[in-house]
C-alpha cells in the first residue's frame, strides 16, 4: 500500500518537473520570437526614415522619373500606416516597398551623375544594409517561429502549450515576388 503511494508521488513529481521544463522552454522561445520581431521592426522603421532623405537627394537629378519617385513615396506611406496592424498586413506593405526600392535603384543606374554623388552613395549603402538587416532579422524571426510552432504542435509539448495557452506564431513572409528575387540591393 505504502509502495503504491510512493510510486504515485514519484510519478507526479517527475511529471511536474517535465511540465515545468517544457513550459520554461516554451517561454524562452516565445520571448525570443518577440525580441526578434522588435529587431525587424527597428530595421523597418529605419528604412522608413531613410526614404525621404533619398528622395530629397535624388529629386534634382531624376526630374524625368516623377512617377517612380511618387510610387516609392506612396509605398512608404502605406508601409508606415500598416505598421502595428499585424504581421501579415505589415509584411505585405513592406514587401511592396521593397519591390519599389529595387525598381528605383534599377532606374537610378541610368544616372551617372547620381552615382558620383557621395551623399547618394552613402544613402545607398545605408539602404542596402537596412534591406539586408531586414531579411536577416526576418530569417532569425522565422527560425524562432518555426521552433516555437514545432513545440506548440508536437507531442508531448503540445499538451503543456494547450494547458498554458501558447499559440503558434505567424511567419513573416514578404509578398512581393520582386523581393524574393532580389533580396538585396548591392552596389559595390
Amino acid at each position: 500500500m505504502m509502495i503504491a503511494v510512493y510510486i504515485i508521488i514519484g510519478v507526479v513529481v517527475v511529471l511536474g518537473i517535465i511540465f515545468f521544463g517544457v513550459y520554461n522552454s516554451l517561454v524562452r522561445l516565445r520571448n525570443q520570437v518577440r525580441n526578434s520581431w522588435s529587431q525587424i521592426d527597428v530595421q523597418l522603421k529605419r528604412r522608413h526614415d531613410l526614404i525621404p532623405n533619398l528622395i530629397e537627394t535624388v529629386k534634382g537629378y531624376m526630374k524625368h522619373e516623377r512617377e517612380t519617385l511618387e510610387a516609392v513615396t506612396k509605398a512608404r506611406t502605406s508601409a508606415v500606416e500598416a505598421s502595428g496592424k499585424g504581421v501579415g498586413q505589415q509584411a505585405k506593405a513592406e514587401g511592396e516597398l521593397s519591390g519599389m526600392l529595387t525598381r528605383f535603384f534599377a532606374v537610378a543606374e541610368n544616372y551617372p551623375d547620381l552615382k558620383a554623388n557621395q551623399n547618394f552613395l552613402a544613402l545607398q549603402e545605408e539602404l542596402t544594409t537596412t534591406e539586408n538587416k531586414i531579411s536577416f532579422a526576418r530569417q532569425f524571426y522565422n527560425d524562432g517561429v518555426m521552433h516555437l510552432n514545432n513545440k506548440v504542435q508536437m507531442f508531448p509539448s503540445n499538451m503543456v502549450a494547450g494547458m498554458t495557452g501558447f499559440k503558434v506564431g505567424e511567419f513573416f513572409e514578404l509578398e512581393a515576388p520582386a523581393e524574393r528575387e532580389v533580396p538585396k540591393v548591392s552596389f559595390t
Partner: peptide, 15 residues
C-alpha cells in the same frame, strides 16, 4: 561604415 554594416547584419542573423 560598410564593414560595420556587414558585421551588424551578421549580428542580427545570428541573434
Amino acid at each position: 561604415p560598410r564593414l560595420f554594416n556587414i558585421v551588424e547584419e551578421m549580428k542580427i542573423a545570428s541573434g
